[in-house]
C-alpha cells in the first residue's frame, strides 16, 4: 500500500522538482495519490477521473480548475443522492484543502468530469491531468485508464 502510493507519487515528485518555485504559497506541497479513470466508449460520452489530493504543507490550498489535452472541458463535478434516492450531478465549488487534510475524488462524490473528449480513453493508457490552484501553482498527474467496469485504483 505504502509502496504503491510512493510509486504513484513518483512521477509527480519528479515533475514538481522540475517546475516548483518558491513563489507558490501552498500548492507545491500538494500530493496527488491513487489517480485512476475508466475507459470510455468513443468520444461522445463524458469521462470521469478519480484521485486523492493531499495538502502536506502548512498553508490551505484551493483547487480552482483542471486542464488536460484529453478533454476540452474538464471540470470538477459532484454527484449527490438525495433522501428519495435520486442522484444528480453539478459542477462543484472551489475546493479548499486545509493543511494536513486531503480531499477524495471518488465514485458517487467529487470527480474530475472530462467533457468533450478529444480522443477515446483507452484501457491501459495514461493521460496527463493538471490541477490548478488559487496561488497560481499547477500540479500535473498521470492518470491511468482502467477498464469501464473498474471500481477503484486497485482493480
Amino acid at each position: 500500500m505504502t509502496k504503491r502510493s510512493y510509486i504513484n507519487g513518483l512521477p509527480l515528485v519528479l515533475l514538481l522538482s522540475g517546475m516548483s518555485t518558491p513563489a507558490f504559497a501552498g500548492s507545491e506541497d500538494v500530493v496527488v495519490e491513487n489517480a485512476w479513470s475508466r475507459a470510455s466508449i468513443g468520444v461522445n460520452r463524458p469521462g470521469a477521473a478519480y484521485m486523492t489530493v493531499r495538502n502536506t504543507g502548512e498553508d490551505a490550498v484551493t483547487l480552482t480548475g483542471l486542464t488536460t489535452p484529453l478533454a476540452v472541458m474538464p471540470e470538477i463535478h459532484e454527484s449527490k443522492t438525495n433522501a428519495d434516492g435520486v442522484s444528480s450531478m453539478a459542477p462543484a465549488d472551489e475546493i479548499t484543502i486545509e493543511p494536513g487534510q486531503s480531499v477524495a475524488l471518488e465514485p458517487g462524490g467529487l470527480h474530475a468530469m472530462l467533457m468533450k473528449l478529444q480522443e477515446p480513453m483507452t484501457e491501459g493508457e495514461n493521460f496527463p491531468l493538471t490541477l490548478t490552484f488559487s496561488d497560481g501553482g499547477k500540479v500535473t498527474v498521470e492518470v491511468p485508464i482502467l477498464g469501464i467496469a473498474a471500481r477503484g485504483p486497485e482493480s
Binding site: 460520452r45 463524458p46 469521462g47 470521469a48 454527484s79 450531478m89 465514485p107 468530469m113
Partner: peptide
Amino acid sequence: FTYCPDVCPT
C-alpha cells in the same frame, strides 16, 4: 443512462 460518467458505471 449510458452518458452518465460517474454514478451509472459505478
